[in-house]
């Protein structure tokens, strides 16, 4: 019964999103004669920008009424060691997914690091609540299937901002789905409502939000277009993650000949 209504809900959701897509339509491609606008359109690579902005606003609204207040309470009420314990625990739960992707990318050393971390933190770290592995020289790193696809040469695709999930262009959306299959937590459930995975998703969201209370405020206040800034931040931090933090100097734009003053 529960399952039935769940499926019905998903169906209504899908129908709603398709309707919204139809209604909002796509961003109008600028006139080919307008070279600056065309270049801007292509650089943004955001063909459904109006819809994305709508979802962005929805998420901001949900953030204001639910997520942010919850995160503030979480941040204010829990002592630091409890918050760190929760973060460590959630990070540790993610280890199988990271190991799978380390291996798929052929990063044997990094897979070894993650495996050691998982072993140490699950035992010495008391089921992952502590993180003694970092002190022993096993630094944490993240990995996901979106990054694995990128390593295999799959492009990010046009920008998509999903309700609840946030920025999720096709490659990373697929990655999110595949990682769910890699994740043992997905297969642990006590009832039809998937209590464990859902709780983990919600708690992870609250903890992440609590850790970025000031950072996100700062970004909002220091940007002229918050939506476009987040789009750029998402893409940049993804490519930084894909390259494991190493700057690819050759991929940087050529700025040697640009200037504003010569046309005066």
């Amino acid at each position: 019964m529960k399952n039935e209504s769940g499926k019905g809900f998903i169906r209504i959701g899908v129908a709603g999103i398709s309707l919204a897509l139809l209604l909002a339509g796509c961003a109008t491609r600028p006139d080919a004669g307008d070279t600056a606008a065309t270049a801007a359109y292509e650089e943004a690579n955001d063909p459904i920008e109006p819809l994305n902005r709508y979802f962005f606003e929805v998420n901001n609204f949900l953030d204001i009424i639910i997520l942010r207040p919850t995160a503030e309470i979480y941040d204010g009420v829990l002592p630091r060691f409890a918050k760190n314990g929760i973060r460590n625990f959630l990070d540790n739960l993610r280890s199988p997914v990271i190991i799978a992707n380390d291996l798929l990318q052929g990063q044997w050393d990094r897979a070894g690091t993650t495996t050691s971390r998982f072993g140490i933190n699950t035992t010495v770290g008391l089921l992952g609540l502590g993180d003694p592995a970092t002190g022993w020289g096993y630094q944490r790193h993240g990995e996901d299937f979106g990054q694995t696809l990128a390593v295999y040469g799959v492009g990010e695709g046009p920008y998509f901002y999903a309700p609840l999930l946030g920025p999720a262009p096709p490659r990373d959306l697929v990655g999110f789905g595949v990682d769910t299959f890699f994740d043992p937590i997905t297969y642990i459930f006590w009832d039809d409502a998937y209590t464990v995975p859902v709780t983990r998703f919600v708690l992870n969201g609250i903890d992440l939000r609590a850790r970025n209370l000031t950072t996100l405020d700062e970004i909002e206040r220091t940007s002229i277009d918050y939506y476009a800034a987040i789009r750029s931040l998402y893409r940049q931090s993804r490519s930084d993650e894909i390259l494991n933090g190493v700057t690819d100097v050759d991929a940087l734009p050529d700025i040697s000949n640009i200037n504003l003053s010569s046309d005066f």
């Binding site: 600028p30 801007a40 359109y41 943004a44 939506y227 476009a228 800034a229 750029s232 931090s237």
Partner: peptide, 25 residues
């Protein structure tokens, strides 16, 4: 300057271009 994976000028460019384009140039 790139801090925690983010080039600042790149971020500004994204916002500036977006504002001009969404205001029809």
């Amino acid at each position: 300057v790139k801090v925690v994976g983010i080039w600042m000028a790149q971020e500004q460019r994204s916002s500036f271009i977006s504002v001009i384009r969404n205001n029809n140039g």
